[in-house]
Amino acid sequence: MSKILIVDDDPDIQEACRLVLEKEGFQVGCASNRAEGLRAVADVKPDLLILDVMMEEPDDGLTMARELRRQGFTEPIIMLTSVNAAMGLTIDRDDEMVPVDKFQSKPVEPATLVAQVNELLGL
């Protein structure tokens, strides 16, 4: 059973993603900020990460994605965020600055999220 970690400061998003993904049979863990998220990645060793951007700092998710890649975390990351709408940005994934596998703006349809997870996990 694949383990998925959700790092998002919004408990509603955590809960919604958890419900959707648990229903699909995934084991789901949650963290609410960057520091907790980094610890959880080390402890849980998730097979996939769903990562928010705007947490304690508005750019936390960008910084955390790079930090994880620097630490050698190679599992897929879905960046699930409303940063573009909130800040008027046009960010997308890129190897240097946004090293994630999918960049998904909130809100996301449950089916889309599940499809992305399955695709990235090769299921």
Binding site: E57, P58, D59, L62, T63, L89, T90, I91, D94, M97
Partner: peptide, 14 residues
Amino acid sequence: FPTGMKWNFCAAEK
């Protein structure tokens, strides 16, 4: 304003 954050967003922009 935090300098790193300003750079972060600008760097991520395409």
